[in-house]
């Protein structure tokens, strides 16, 4: 069968090869809250175009890890390295603050479980999407608006509602808006904290499909924290299983879910109700 090759996809394809350096490396990341461990000695790498899932029960430290690797919470010890576009790998807690903040609003995205935390609720959907563009110097209203229209379309929202305030949208639509707002600057990695957490099951499924499509079409790397193994299976290439602040098992998603090795992973997998 003749298969047409598309350059962008071809790039992503080679990006997945082991020769390309990892985009993000966490080494021995440990975070203590007032002496209480949030996560301990967590090490992993994320390659370009790869989706890494972090699963575990609440309190297992998965959100702590996500915050530590996304420059939102400095670890007590350990390092987090990010492969910057121009200067190669850099320790995100040792680079200058302007450089780190620029990274956070251009090269990175962060999708919160509660869209209210990730959206600017007082301004319109269009302005929410355009904000990052304006933050990096876009000064042409027409172009910003066009980009906002394109992104509403990509996340399958009604472009006619561009000037509506976020609170007039449903939870699922707010989450789409949050995703569009993050992706408009073409980030290379997106951190997501329970992105489908607060949504109805029917809405969840569509959002999952959208996320999966965006991640693969854009060649995005992503780290997704979820307690939902079904979400993890559908979205992530690899999984980390966390328990009591430590990674107890890691591997390909279907390896971990189909053939769990650690007692805790086995318990987790066997506890899921299959409808």
């Amino acid at each position: 069968m003749a298969v047409l090759q598309c350059n962008a996809l071809q790039l992503r394809y080679t990006g997945m090869m082991p020769e390309a350096p990892p985009l993000l490396s966490a080494r021995g990341v440990t975070k203590y809250y007032e002496g209480i461990p949030g996560c301990r000695n967590v090490s992993f790498e994320v390659w370009p175009g790869e989706v890494l899932g972090i699963v575990g029960e609440s309190g297992s430290g998965k959100t702590t890890v996500l915050n530590c690797i996304s420059a939102r919470l400095e670890p007590t010890s350990g390092t987090v390295e990010y492969a910057t576009r121009h200067d190669g790998p850099a320790d995100i807690y040792r680079m200058s603050e302007p450089a780190r903040r620029l990274l956070m609003r251009t090269d990175w995205g962060f999708v919160h479980q509660n869209p209210r935390e990730g959206l600017r609720m007082g301004v319109s959907a269009g302005a929410n999407i355009g904000e990052r563009l304006m933050a990096v110097g876009a000064r042409h209203y027409g172009n910003i608006r066009q980009a906002a229209t394109d992104w509403l379309d990509k996340v399958e929202m009604d472009t006619g509602r561009m000037d509506d305030l976020p609170f007039t949208f449903s939870g699922g639509m707010q989450q789409r808006l949050q995703i569009a707002r993050n992706l408009v600057t073409a980030p290379r990695i997106v951190f997501m904290d329970e992105p489908t957490g607060g949504l109805d099951v029917s809405v969840q499924a569509r959002l999952l499909d959208l996320l999966r499509g965006l991640v693969s079409d854009l060649g995005l790397a992503a780290v997704i924290v979820t307690h939902d193994l079904a979400v993890a299976r559908l979205l992530s290439h690899r999984l980390l299983v966390m328990r009591r602040g430590e990674v107890v098992e890691s591997g390909l998603t279907d390896q971990v879910l189909d053939d769990p090795q650690h007692p805790y992973s086995q318990l987790l997998v066997s506890s899921v109700i299959h409808p």
Binding site: L9, A205, R206, R212, L234
Partner: peptide, 23 residues
């Protein structure tokens, strides 16, 4: 993935191998 059309489920195999979405 729930709610994904059958033809998209099948086409995904080729898209993952770098095929043009329409083809």
């Amino acid at each position: 993935v729930p709610r994904v059309a059958a033809e998209d489920v099948v086409a995904e195999t080729l898209r993952g191998r770098g095929a043009d979405p329409e083809a």
